[in-house]
């Protein structure tokens, strides 16, 4: 049955043509241009010069900070989303949906708008500091710090963690958890030995979906980091729009892409492990 279906689909493979054309023209070709620009000089000769420029301390520092902040915001998103998904799993009905939508709300608003809102919240004379001073507490310096950027990332990208994680956790049957309890596992042991391993695909794909945009963002770091905190995204933007050094900008993009490809490979690897589980008798 399955074979026949796949045979029918492959005989209709021409249906994929529009997308294949689209992908070739607007995804593969531009990527090739980025690679080409990053690895050649102005005259079209191959050179590793731009790539080695990336190894200069100021670029490396930005790269390191970008990876660190992206990792940190991924971890925070995971810690926030996991318990939420566990709770949502148990009450799947009406109330669950409401909480779920609440967490997805940032997706429906323009991220530029929400980031600017965070700007006014965290400013020197912003809402947080106004509240603190009203309470007689000393103000905090948040805006233009890495912390502010992480808050912005978490706020904007949390939904991308919640969605795959929820799908993966809600797929775990209640009787699996009951079986673990029945065999002597307390709630914590059940989480560690059964829930976490079974939801690993969700954890990995959620993490990928938060890590990649966090790594490449420049809007959040520009608005919440001022010019004090430079991330790779900001440098790439500057190389293209201010310094007009397309070669260096492309080389930086290529380096960034390596991280992204690594991440996607990790996700593909955990998903292929999951393949066997889908076959239910």
């Amino acid at each position: 049955m399955r074979e026949r279906l796949s045979a029918r689909l492959s005989s209709h493979s021409f249906l994929a043509l529009p997308f294949a054309l689209w992908a070739a023209l607007f995804i593969v070709l531009p990527l090739f241009f980025v690679l080409w620009t990053g690895l050649t000089d102005g005259a079209g000769r191959f050179t590793a010069e731009h790539l080695s420029t990336v190894l200069q301390p100021e670029y490396l520092r930005a790269l390191k900070l970008s990876v660190e902040l992206a990792l940190l915001s991924t971890c925070i998103c995971l810690v926030l989303a996991y318990p939420l998904c566990l709770i949502l799993r148990e009450r799947r009905e009406r109330q669950g949906l409401l909480v779920f939508l609440l967490f997805l709300l940032p997706l429906w608003m323009n991220s530029l708008l929400t980031t600017m809102a965070w700007q006014t919240i965290m400013e020197k004379h912003g809402i947080i500091n106004m509240l603190l001073s009203a309470l007689g507490l000393p103000g905090v310096h948040l805006i233009n710090t890495p912390a502010a950027i992480v808050i912005g990332m978490v706020y904007n990208f949390l939904p991308y963690m919640v969605l795959p994680l929820y799908v993966s956790i809600s797929r775990i049957d209640e009787s699996i958890i009951e079986a673990a309890r029945d065999l002597g596992a307390n709630p914590f042991q059940t989480l560690r030995r059964v829930l976490l391993p079974l939801s690993l695909p969700g954890i990995v794909s959620g993490s990928t979906m938060v890590f990649i945009p966090s790594l490449t963002t420049f809007v959040i770091s520009a608005l919440l980091g001022g010019n004090k905190v430079l991330l790779v995204g900001n440098i790439i933007e500057q190389e293209f729009t201010a310094a007009y050094d397309w070669q260096l900008g492309s080389a930086l993009s290529v380096v960034l892409m390596v991280f992204i490809i690594l991440n996607i490979l990790l996700e593909a690897f955990t998903n292929s492990g999951e393949q066997g589980k889908k076959r239910r008798p």
Binding site: S175, A179, D182, V194, L200
Partner: peptide, 20 residues
């Protein structure tokens, strides 16, 4: 008493084996 503390074990209808 919590299920993990009972001297009772269950065979579930849906087998409920740990697939990992």
């Amino acid at each position: 008493l919590q299920p993990e503390k009972r001297q009772v074990n269950t065979v579930f209808q849906k087998y409920s084996l740990f697939s990992h």
